[in-house]
Amino acid sequence: MTNIPMEAGLLLAGILFTLGLISVLIRRNIIFMLISVEIMLNAAGLAFIVAATRWAQPDGQVMFIFILTMAAAEVSVGLALILQLHHQLKTLDSDAANKMFG
């Protein structure tokens, strides 16, 4: 019924992904890094939905569900790790966790 060009959808996914990437790169706060990873995952999911719509197939949406599941698991483990890190180091600075330095 509507004619949304596929480029537009994929471009949106790319832009969101890049924004998440920038955030991961520039933030030192480990919670922000986790949030950024969520943004990137979401962007990847968006790309799958666009593809699913393009081909009118459910596979892309199935993939999105998988990504969703993974994101949920990742967030739970990641947050547990952050709690532990904060408990040990009393900071959220990811650079502080370089005890295994080269």
Binding site: M1, T2, N3, I4, P5, M6, E7, G9, V50, A52, T53, R54, A56, Q57, P58, D59, Q61, V62, I65
Partner: peptide
């Protein structure tokens, strides 16, 4: 050179069947 999306809704039922 990509075609525009002809926007066929894929409803939850199909997704469930595929899953």
């Amino acid at each position: 050179d990509m075609p525009t999306i002809n926007n066929q809704p894929v409803d939850a039922r199909e997704v469930g069947l595929a899953l």
